[in-house]
């Protein structure tokens, strides 16, 4: 190997991974556009949609609720500890509420749903791919994108804002419980304080974010499931990729959306 070969090794590796990254972005974008185009064209599968709504929305309630409850409680303690350094303990209720609805409710809820839903979608569709069920769907004149992807993506996009809204309420309640029982806040004053400082835009921006996160979660689950490799290992890898990419995309898009709503 000559010196020139060694010198080109590093730029070649950088170039290769850059190209691979661009290719993935391109194929995810095409997958997303194809999902949207199938969303608008019949046939529709309402039964599949309701089934997905139940699994993605309703069954995620405990996970999202628990996450919000403990996060709200911890948030109250942290803000109290920080606020007390410049005699601003009274901001606890409003900051807990704003923090929950603008940021933590949708983001943590989205991440929890990513772990639960993106994984299960990728594993289910990946197994269907490996056992030729996707091919079987096609031969039975049923488009896999319409039958599998569209109902899940639509259900997640619609269910996630509802989950986030419920998470917001439970999170604020977590802060309230800690505030009243541990930090000696007056119950009525805590509620009034929360209510007075919270604006409608705080809530709606958080819910829009949640809808975007829901879309990302289901899209990543379906995308990686449909491209699953062979065998148990392929499905395992697809599941991991789905959760990791959904989580990273949630955090990245959260920053972008926060800039937009700022």
């Amino acid at each position: 190997m000559t010196a020139a070969d060694i010198l080109t090794l590093i730029p070649a590796a950088v170039g290769r991974s850059t190209l691979a990254f661009c290719r993935i972005i391109g194929s995810v974008a095409i997958f997303a556009l194809s999902t949207l185009s199938h969303l608008l064209r019949p046939p529709f599968y309402p039964k599949e949609f309701l089934h997905a709504l139940l699994h993605i929305g309703y069954f995620s309630l405990p996970v999202v609720g628990m996450t919000a409850l403990f996060t709200g409680g911890a948030l109250a303690l942290q803000i109290y500890s920080g606020g007390s350094r410049f005699n601003a303990e009274s901001v606890v209720p409003s900051i807990v509420a704003i923090g929950m609805v603008r940021e933590l409710g949708p983001v943590l809820g989205g991440l929890m749903v990513a772990g639960r839903v993106a994984a299960s979608i990728a594993a289910e569709i990946g197994t269907m791919k490996v056992t030729e069920q996707i091919d079987a769907l096609t031969t039975l004149s049923t488009h896999p994108m319409k039958y599998l992807t569209v109902p899940r993506v639509l259900a997640a996009t619609l269910a996630m804002p509802v989950l986030a809204a419920i998470g917001d309420v439970i999170g604020i309640m977590g802060g309230y419980l800690v505030g009243v029982t541990r930090l000696d806040f007056n119950s009525a004053a805590y509620i009034k304080n929360t209510y007075d400082f919270l604006e409608v835009a705080d809530v709606t921006s958080g819910l829009w974010k949640a809808a975007a996160f829901g879309f990302i979660v289901a899209l990543m689950g379906c995308y990686h499931g449909m491209r699953s490799g062979r065998g148990a290992q392929g499905v395992g890898k697809a599941t991991t990729n789905a959760v990791v990419s959904a989580s990273v995309m949630i955090l990245a898009s959260n920053y972008v959306l926060t800039e937009v709503f700022f």
Partner: peptide, 28 residues
Amino acid sequence: FGMLFQGGALFDSLAVWQNVAFRLLRGS
């Protein structure tokens, strides 16, 4: 066309009769 897949490729979320009647329950 009708096709019998190597591993059966039955949809495991559906009951047997819904698998058999898949084409008859939706589409044209």
